[in-house]
């Protein structure tokens, strides 16, 4: 197999993994904290706690993860065909 495909397959799996973790974070905080009665809600910077963690912190963490992935994990490969390997 083209060695570049190994890299591609690994990175696609990283994408699936990140989406799963992202979903769990988003879902867990939204419905974990958000299911409490409204009177018991706590607020951070004015936002309901469930929303703050699920959507604002969640978004920041995903952005940070993507930056780390792009800088340190994803590999540079050439997209052009090399010689007669076909």
């Amino acid at each position: 197999m083209d060695p570049r495909f190994k890299i591609a397959h690994r990175e696609a799996l990283i994408g699936v993994g990140l989406a799963i973790v992202h979903f769990i974070w988003w879902f867990g905080f939204a419905y974990g904290l958000g299911s409490a009665p409204v009177e018991e809600y706590k607020y951070i910077l004015g936002f309901p706690e469930w929303f703050f963690y699920s959507c604002i912190v969640g978004f920041l963490l995903v952005s940070l993860t993507v930056i780390i992935l792009a800088k340190f994990v994803l590999k540079d490969v050439s997209f052009e065909e090399e010689g007669d390997q076909l």
């Binding site: 083209d2 570049r4 495909f5 890299i7 591609a8 397959h9 990175e11 696609a12 990283i14 994408g15 699936v16 990140l18 989406a19 992202h22 979903f23 978004f59 995903v62 993507v66 992935l69 490969v77 997209f79």
Partner: peptide, 17 residues
């Protein structure tokens, strides 16, 4: 938000190649 990374990571390098 997931679309921002998911489309490119999944189709990614293999599709480009």
């Amino acid at each position: 938000v997931v679309t921002g990374y998911f489309v490119l990571l999944i189709l990614g390098k293999k599709f480009a190649i």
